Amino acid sequence: MLEGKVKWFNSEKGFGFIEVEGQDDVFVHFSAIQGEGFKTLEEGQAVSAEIVEGNRGPQAANVTKEA
């Protein structure tokens, strides 16, 4: 698991990027966000996630919002 913060997230398109210190930004799709209801993230929000290899490079999986 790694910790980072949301760089930006487009709720209409359902994707965005997470900033991780010392690494390239990581793509995040709404389907990777854990929880019930409408899955979205806010800019600057702290999150933790796993990194997996997607079709277009590294992407976030099992994204959870930090308190």
Rank of each mutant, 00 (worst) to 15 (best):
K13N: 06
V52Y: 10
T64E: 08
V47R: 01
V26H: 01
N62Q: 09
S11R: 14
V20K: 04
E53S: 12
E3H: 15
Q34T: 12
R56A: 08
N55Q: 13
G22R: 03
K7L: 05
A67G: 12
Q34R: 09
E66S: 15
G37A: 05
A46D: 08
Q23I: 11
R56P: 06
N55A: 14
Q45W: 10
E12P: 04
A32D: 13
K13F: 09
K39V: 08
D24V: 12
E19G: 08
Q59I: 10
P58K: 13
W8G: 01
E43A: 15
T40G: 05
G14M: 02
Q34W: 09
D25A: 06
E53Q: 15
T64A: 09
V63Q: 01
D25K: 05
D24W: 09
D25V: 07
A61T: 10
V63H: 02
L2E: 04
V20Y: 06
N10V: 04
V20A: 06
N55V: 14
E3R: 15
K65R: 11
E50Q: 14
K65M: 11
I33W: 01
R56Q: 09
K7W: 02
F15N: 03
V20P: 00
E42H: 14
K5R: 12
K39S: 05
D25S: 06
G57K: 05
I51E: 02
K13E: 04
E53N: 13
Q45T: 09
I51Y: 07
I51L: 10
Q45V: 09
V26K: 02
N10T: 04
S11W: 10
G44Q: 04
G22F: 07
E3G: 09
V52T: 09
E36R: 09
A49T: 12
E50C: 15
L41P: 01
G44W: 04
N10W: 08
Q34Y: 09
I51A: 03
F15M: 06
G37W: 06
I51K: 07
V63F: 00
F17Q: 01
I18W: 00
G57F: 05
L41D: 03
F30Q: 08
V52E: 07
I33C: 08
A61F: 10
G54M: 07
N62W: 11
V26M: 06
E12A: 14
V26P: 01
I51D: 00
A61M: 12
Q45C: 10
A67I: 13
A60K: 02
F17M: 08
A46R: 15
K13I: 08
G37K: 03
V47L: 03
F9D: 03
M1K: 15
A49G: 12
G35I: 07
G35Q: 09
S48I: 13
G14K: 00
F30H: 10
V6H: 01
N55T: 13
Q23D: 07
H29K: 02
K39H: 05
A49H: 09
V6E: 03
Q59L: 08
L41C: 07
V63M: 02
I18P: 00
E50P: 02
N62C: 13
E3Q: 15
Q23E: 09
E53I: 15
H29W: 06
G57S: 06
G35V: 08
K5T: 10
W8Y: 07
R56F: 12
V28L: 07
Q45D: 12
Q23C: 12
N62K: 13
S48Q: 12
W8M: 00
P58V: 10
E42W: 13
N55H: 14
T40A: 07
N10R: 02
T64G: 06
D25L: 09
N10D: 12
V47N: 02
V26F: 05
E36F: 10
E43F: 12
T40M: 08
F38T: 06
G35S: 09
G54P: 02
T64S: 10
F17E: 01
H29G: 03
E42M: 14
I33K: 00
A49P: 02
I51C: 08
G14L: 03
W8F: 07
E50T: 14
K7V: 05
W8N: 01
S11G: 09
A46Q: 13
D24K: 14
F30W: 15
A46G: 09
P58Q: 08
K13D: 03
G44P: 01
I18G: 00
M1L: 13
M1T: 12
S31H: 08
V20W: 07
D25F: 07
N55M: 14
S48F: 14
Q59E: 12
G37D: 06
D24H: 11
G44M: 04
V6D: 03
G16C: 06
G16K: 00
A61W: 08
F38K: 05
I33H: 02
A67W: 11
A32H: 07
A49S: 06
L41I: 05
L2R: 11
V52Q: 08
E12K: 14
Q23P: 05
V28P: 07
Q59A: 08
F27K: 05
A49W: 12
A67T: 13
K5V: 11
E36L: 10
G35D: 09
S11M: 10
E21W: 11
K65P: 11
F9M: 02
L2S: 07
T40L: 06
E42K: 14
L2K: 12
Q45I: 08
G35L: 06
A46M: 14
A60M: 05
P58I: 10
E42Y: 15
V52P: 01
H29R: 02
P58R: 15
H29N: 02
V6A: 00
I33Q: 03
M1W: 13
K5W: 10
V6S: 01
Q23Y: 15
L2G: 03
V52F: 10
F27L: 05
V47W: 00
A49N: 02
M1V: 13
S48E: 07
V28S: 01
K65T: 11
W8L: 00
G4P: 01
E19W: 10
K39C: 09
A60P: 02
G37V: 03
E42S: 12
F17L: 05
E36M: 10
E53F: 14
Q23T: 08
F30T: 08
Q45P: 00
A46C: 15
V63G: 01
G57E: 01
E19Q: 12
S11K: 15
E12I: 13
V52I: 12
A32S: 10
D24A: 14
H29I: 04
E50M: 14
E36Y: 09
E66M: 15
V63L: 08
E3C: 15
Q23M: 15
V63C: 04
E66W: 11
S31T: 13
F27C: 08
N55I: 14
T64K: 15
E36N: 11
E50G: 08
F15G: 01
N10Y: 04
V28Q: 02
P58S: 08
I33A: 03
D25M: 07
G54H: 07
K39A: 06
A49Y: 15
K65G: 08
D25I: 07
E42V: 14
N10S: 11
G16F: 05
K13C: 10
N10K: 05
R56E: 05
V63N: 01
G4N: 00
N55K: 15
F15A: 01
G22S: 05
G4A: 06
V20R: 08
F27M: 01
I18S: 01
Q34S: 11
